[in-house]
């Protein structure tokens, strides 16, 4: 897919909680086709400590308004700066980058996300609905004060919820949720995005239960378009670039040890 580098206009900045916000960005030209699982590289601003672009999963695409949304977790100076952007500001993106989640040949689909890793699942839910598939969502957060957008996910499918401290939904990690205690699992395919440890645990569970699983990796990267070879992960084919051959991989192909 052809990549672009364009200035986008900020049209919305919605705070979800103390650590997360959603940026809504409008393109000056008609958006190209974008697929769920793809990401953008954001040029934050010209400060010595935010030298490189930051990668973000695409949270949602609305072709009717020519906008896309990013779900951002505040981690450092770059994301703090992004949190202060206001309507009218511009942000330069390189997009759409990477591969995408596969289109399942089944209706029995589970989308699993944790923390800011839920970002691509909203877009995937909408995309699947347009293909007449209603997935189930299993989303995990630290605690009730970080749980957000459940009503939005519910538009696209049934939502199961867990929090680490049990303040909302079931207590524990997503892998401890009762959804995974069913045998056999009522799904033919799992799509997962979140912290590495969570994705590794979900992929192990999926393998044990014989369900195909795709994960979206979030390795550190410099360019995001395949030239620096910094974001590699070990797979059954050797070192592959997360930004080009990924970010979505068949979990069974990953060696995991390179990602800590």
């Amino acid at each position: 897919m052809k990549k672009f580098a364009h200035d986008f206009q900020v049209v919305g900045n919605t705070r979800l909680n103390t650590r997360h916000f959603i940026l809504e960005l409008k393109a000056a030209v008609p958006l190209p086709e974008i697929l769920p699982g793809q990401f953008v590289q954001v040029l934050v601003h010209n400060s010595p400590s935010t030298f490189l672009r930051r990668p973000f999963s695409i949270h949602f695409v609305d072709y009717s308004t020519n906008t896309l949304r990013l779900l951002v977790q505040v981690k450092g100076e770059g994301t703090r700066h992004m949190g202060m952007l206001a309507p009218g500001d511009t942000l330069n993106l390189v997009y759409p980058l990477g591969n995408s989640f596969s289109v399942p040949a089944t209706h029995k689909v589970l989308l699993v996300g944790g923390g800011a890793g839920v970002a691509p699942l909203m877009f995937m839910g909408d995309y699947l609905n347009k293909k007449n598939i209603r997935p189930d969502f299993l989303v995990g957060f630290r605690s009730a004060d970080e749980v957000s957008q459940i009503d939005e996910y519910s538009k696209f499918g049934k939502v199961y919820l867990s929090t680490d401290d049990g303040s909302m939904g079931e207590k524990g990690f997503v892998t401890q949720h009762s959804v995974f205690k069913q045998s056999p699992l009522p799904y033919d395919r799992i799509y997962c995005c979140g912290p590495d440890a969570m994705m590794h645990a979900v992929s192990k569970l999926a393998a044990e239960k014989g369900v195909a699983c795709e994960v979206s990796l979030e390795n550190f990267m410099a360019c995001g378009y395949g030239v620096c070879l910094c974001c590699i992960t070990q797979t059954d084919k050797g070192n592959e670039r997360v930004c080009i051959e990924g970010p979505v991989f068949d979990a069974a192909r990953l060696k995991w040890q390179s990602n800590g």
């Binding site: 390795n219 550190f220 620096c228 910094c230 974001c231 992960t233 070990q234 050797g238 070192n239 990602n259």
Partner: peptide, 23 residues
Amino acid sequence: RNGNKYPRMAETPSGMLNSVGLQ
């Protein structure tokens, strides 16, 4: 050459450190 292990990159003040290892 497979190059070096991940992680191969660090963002540093006004620059970056890499260790790709001639992959």
